[in-house]
Amino acid sequence: MITIWLTLFGLLPFVLITVASFLSHDSRHLITLPFTFNNYLEILNPIYFKIFEKSFYLAGACTLLCLLLGYPFAYILARTREPYKSLLMLLTIVPFWTSSLIRSYAIMALIKAKGILNGILMALGIIDHPLQLLFSNTAVLLALVYNLLPFMILPLFSSIERLDNRLIEAARDLGANKTTTFLKVIIPLSLPGILAGSILVFLPAMTLFYIPDLLGGSKSMLLGNLIQNQFLLTVNWPLGSATSILLTVMMLILLGIYWHFSKAKDRQSLL
């Protein structure tokens, strides 16, 4: 019974969307025959290509920033003693579960022209005109990092926490200095965590369509907004499906990379 239920909701939608991505549409039907590859050819159109490029660029920047901010944080947290560790972890998990829409809205309120950030900067005399931060790529990037940072920290934390201390001590005993130990021992051993965190940040960064919508203004369009428009604005479902499939393929490639670099026990922590 439950297998049927889960198959119905876990697998069937994906089969349908794959099929839909190979079909056409006309003015009377959302999806109709004949079978075609046109949707995939259409995605290669330069207009769409620009959106992909921008999505990759922003999501990549977001992933990198999250990694740079999150790694030292996760490292410090993993080395903290109990009971502080649990408390600090709880404080990291809370933003993970609260609504990212509300958190994006908070960023909006913070950086708007008459917002508190401009207020502080002007009061300090750093700037004399309010910065036009809202409705820019910077705003989108800031909101993405703000929302997705916990998704990077949690897998990093669990992989650094499991790191065997004896290996670090052995490296030090054999004469490695701090930098070498970090680069040659700690980083490679926490690679599964780095990869898992990157996947959890990179994919949502491209698809959380409400963030560019709210903070990026009318010109800002990422992969998620493209799919949203194809489904609800231009009502070209087969094309939207093809774009979704493209995204899924990207996810599978990233997962493949992760699978290659991780061991079974690391994978359990991702789930």
């Binding site: 876990g10 939608p13 349908l16 969307i17 491209m206 799919i227 949203q228």
Partner: peptide, 20 residues
């Protein structure tokens, strides 16, 4: 199925369910 549901981006699940 559980794995697919957990890891697929929300937007893909949303559009796929809409089609279904």
């Amino acid at each position: 199925s559980i794995f697919v549901l957990l890891l697929s981006p929300d937007i893909v699940l949303g559009t796929a369910l809409l089609i279904m």
